[in-house]
Structures are given as C-alpha cells and as structure tokens.
Nucleic acid binder design. Structure first.
Length: 364
DNA sequence: GTAATTTGACCCTG
DNA sequence: CAGGGTCAAATTAC
C-alpha cells in the first residue's frame, strides 16, 4: 500500500498528520489544564479532521487481512470503567469463537453468503452497565431485532443475536451479539458485525419502528440497556493490542470505525476484507465496510497504528475525568457532526507498517 | 393485525 | 462431531 503513494499523497498526508499531531499536542496540554469541554472538542475535532483527510488521501487499497487486534477502549463517563483496557481484553479468545461459527448460511445464496459473512468486519464492544445510568437514554441510532439466543459453552450467560430491523427491507447486513460477561455480570460484550447500509439506522432520529417498544424491551434486557446507555456515556480512546508492526505483518489489520460512543472496550477483530462491504455502501466516499453500529455520525478516538503507549497514558488520564464524556456526548449529536459517515477503513486506506507515520513523536 | 421475540431445528465450520 | 450462528414457526406484545 504505502508503496503506491505518490509524492503528493505523501505530502498531503504529512501535512494532515502534522496538523493532527499539533492538535493532539494542544489537546494534551489542554487536558493538563483542565480546559473546557468546548475547547477540547474543538481540538479533538481538529484531530479527527486531520485523520479523515489524511486517510481520505490514501488510495483505497486491496483488501487485506486483519491480523493483530486493535483495542478501542472507551470510557464510561460517570460510570465505572475497566481499570485497564488491556486487562479486560485478556479474557477472550473471541476471535476463535467467531471464526469458527462465522459462516452460517445466508438465505439467498448459502455459499456466497457464507463467504461474505466471513468478510464482514466485526468488533467487540465491552460495555459496563451502571445502576445510575438509568433507563432513559438514547437509542444507538439503529433498530435491532433479536433473531436468536444460544447458550454458549462454558459461558454462564446465553448469547443473544440481533440483526438490523431493516435487514429484509433494505438488505442491511449489520448484526450484533450480546453476551453478559462471565466475570462481571455488569459487563456485556457486544460484538458487532457488518455495516449498516440501512438509511434509517444512521439518522439522528432513527426511524425505529417502535421506539417505545424497544425501550421497554431493552429495559428488561440488560444487554441492550447496557449497550444503548453505554453508547452515550463514553469517551473513546484507542489502544492497540498485539500489534507488531515491526514484524513481518505487512498491513494494518482492522479497518476501524469507532462506534461513536461505545463504552467499555471495543475490539476490532478479525477483519478480513473490505470488498464486500464496499459493495453495500452508497456513494463510496467515506463509507467503509465498517459502518458504525451505533451512531456513525461522529467518533472521537485516538488511533495508534503502532504499539505505542502514548495513548494508553492518555487513556489513563481521561479515564478519571468526565469531560470527554461531555465532549463525546456533545459531538454525538448528529447535528453537530461534521462528519456524515465517520467510517473509514485503515484496511482500505492501505495503512501499513511502512506508512510514514511517526507515532513516536505524536505525543512528545 | 402487525411487528418483535422466543425457541427448537437446522446448517456450516473447524 | 461439537459448537456457534441463523432460520422460521409459534408465541407474545402493542
């Protein structure tokens, strides 16, 4: 991928990245100064813009495999949050699980669908539910319909399967799985797969077929409750795990989209190909195979394509604060979002270890 | 009556 | 063959 960059691309990327770096530096300074959420938001937006532009400059590259995992840790605002993103991540070998069962058939064309299913991006969001969260709370912007529940081997709690309500009408292939954590009953692992191609889903006022019904339903369903609530109570930070870009891994594994405000941890797992997903996207601009399952309108995140610790440090700082939550909440409002579809794929972007991205100097 | 959920059966993958 | 994911008929909720 990086090999395909021409001079202009590199220059543009550099400019954007430098700009992003500057914003990040300012943000860091502001964090230390305990600045207002507004200021922070501006800075973060700047960072995001820079990334978006940078990534947009990159040509879409061929599908590549997802090898390492990205761990996106999102902090719950006022609620508790896992002490360490990485620590929480330890517990699962979900990749294996999912890979094994990934392939179920599709209605239309079993074999084709099976392949497609395999290529759908997926990521796990760990959500911690808190009593104070309450039941009110916005929907994640998408309408889900439960289509199955299974008892999982060695798991205390069953896993619920949801798919987009508009699966049939709009052929939206997004699905999610919700399972209560064995270790911490207040913790839910929500695995999203596929991108929303439905129109209703991403809107600020999702055309939920029956909002009331859903709310009531989900109120009785801790899984959902955690899911929805979490979405609006978070700050996002990204950490990488198992990234060994110095090794022979030649591509950036996961395309990411950051479900704008997922709480807890989010793992980008096992993303394999973007080809299919692109097919389903309209326009093709910044739509990626990784449409957010929640609110794609905006996401605040930090991105580390290398195993650096800088973000981790920032994470720690932020975790104890609530500003970012406000910040995210604010920008979560679709009306505030300058980025219509905050979805992009590093994969597609062709990000790779050779990408001229000096993360070490990102946060001096 | 319509839409969502439940749940047992079936299919696919490893 | 076991386990996970999905289907679809039956049931429930609105």
């Amino acid at each position: 991928m990086e090999g395909g960059l021409n001079y202009e691309q590199k220059v543009l990327i550099s400019e954007q990245l430098i700009q992003g770096t500057n914003f990040a530096k300012q943000l860091r300074a502001q964090l230390n100064l305990d600045s207002s959420a507004e200021t922070l938001e501006t800075l973060i937006q700047g960072i995001l813009d820079s990334y978006v532009k940078s990534l947009g400059i990159l040509k879409w590259s061929e599908p590549i495999k997802c090898q390492p995992q990205y761990v996106v840790a999102a902090t719950l605002g006022a609620t508790s949050v896992p002490a360490s993103p990485l620590s929480v991540n330890n517990g699962s070998s979900r990749d294996d699980e999912f890979d094994r069962g990934l392939a179920a058939k599709e209605q239309f064309d079993s074999r084709e669908a099976s392949k497609k299913r395999k290529m759908l991006p997926k990521w796990t969001d760990q959500v911690k539910i808190s009593p104070e969260a309450g039941l009110e709370g916005p929907q994640d912007g998408y309408s889900w319909r439960k289509y199955g529940q299974k008892d999982i081997l060695l798991a205390k709690y069953p896993r619920s399967y949801y798919r987009c309500t508009y699966r049939n009408t709009q052929n939206c292939q997004a699905t999610k799985q919700v399972q209560k954590s064995d270790h911490d009953p207040t913790m839910f692992e929500i695995t999203y797969r596929g991108n929303h191609t439905c129109i209703h889903g991403g809107s600020s006022t999702p055309a939920l077929t029956s909002p009331k019904k859903q709310e009531l339903k989900q109120a009785n369903d801790g899984n959902h409750q955690a899911d929805e609530l979490a979405r609006f109570r978070t700050g996002l930070m990204v950490e990488t795990e198992n990234l060994d870009l110095g090794s022979d891994v030649t591509e950036m594994p996961c395309p990411f989209t950051f479900p704008s405000s997922s709480a807890g941890l989010l793992y980008c797992e096992n993303y394999s190909s973007s080809g299919v997903a692109h097919k389903g996207n309209r326009g093709g601009n910044f739509s990626s195979p990784f449409l957010s399952p929640s609110t794609p309108e905006s996401s605040h995140f930090s991105l580390t394509p290398s195993p650096m610790t800088e973000f981790g440090q920032i994470s720690s700082q932020r975790r104890s604060e609530s500003d970012l939550t406000e910040l995210v909440s604010a920008t979560n409002s679709p009306t505030n979002s300058p980025i219509p579809d905050w979805d992009f794929s590093l994969d597609d972007m062709g990000f790779g270890p050779d990408f001229p991205f000096d993360m070490a100097g990102f946060f001096p």
